[in-house]
Amino acid sequence: MTTLAAVPGLIDATRCPLCGKPNRCAMEIERETGQTQPPCWCMQVDFSRAPLTNLPEDMRGLACICMRCATGESPPQG
Results as ranks from 00 to 15, higher is better:
Met1Ile: 13
Met1Lys: 12
Thr2Met: 09
Thr2Lys: 12
Leu4Gln: 09
Ala5Ser: 09
Ala6Ser: 15
Ala6Phe: 07
Ala6Gln: 14
Val7Gly: 03
Gly9Asn: 05
Leu10Ala: 10
Leu10Lys: 07
Ile11Trp: 05
Asp12Ala: 13
Asp12Tyr: 03
Asp12Val: 05
Ala13Phe: 01
Thr14Pro: 07
Thr14Phe: 09
Arg15Val: 07
Arg15Asn: 12
Arg15Tyr: 04
Cys16Phe: 00
Cys16Arg: 00
Pro17Arg: 01
Pro17Lys: 01
Leu18Gln: 05
Leu18Met: 10
Cys19Arg: 02
Gly20Tyr: 03
Gly20Asn: 04
Gly20Glu: 07
Lys21Ser: 04
Pro22Lys: 02
Asn23Ala: 09
Arg24Val: 13
Arg24Pro: 05
Cys25Pro: 02
Met27Ile: 13
Met27Cys: 15
Met27Glu: 15
Glu28Cys: 07
Glu28Arg: 06
Glu28Val: 15
Ile29Glu: 12
Arg31Tyr: 08
Arg31Cys: 06
Thr33His: 08
Thr33Glu: 10
Gly34Cys: 14
Gly34Phe: 11
Gln37Asp: 13
Gln37Tyr: 10
Gln37Pro: 07
Gln37Phe: 10
Pro38Glu: 14
Pro39Val: 02
Pro39Lys: 02
Cys40Tyr: 01
Trp41Gly: 03
Cys42Gln: 05
Met43Asn: 08
Gln44Phe: 15
Gln44Ser: 15
Val45His: 05
Asp46Asn: 14
Asp46Val: 09
Ser48Asp: 09
Ala50Tyr: 04
Ala50Glu: 07
Pro51Met: 14
Leu52Phe: 10
Leu52Thr: 13
Asn54Leu: 14
Asn54Cys: 09
Asn54Asp: 14
Asn54Tyr: 03
Asn54Lys: 13
Leu55Lys: 02
Leu55Gln: 04
Pro56Tyr: 11
Asp58His: 10
Met59Arg: 13
Arg60Thr: 00
Arg60Ile: 01
Arg60Ala: 00
Leu62Glu: 04
Leu62Cys: 00
Leu62His: 02
Ile65Lys: 01
Cys66Phe: 06
Cys69Leu: 02
Cys69Arg: 00
Cys69Trp: 01
Cys69Asn: 01
Ala70Met: 00
Ala70Cys: 03
Gly72Trp: 01
Glu73Trp: 11
Ser74Trp: 00
Ser74Cys: 01
Ser74Phe: 02
Pro75Arg: 07
Gly78His: 06
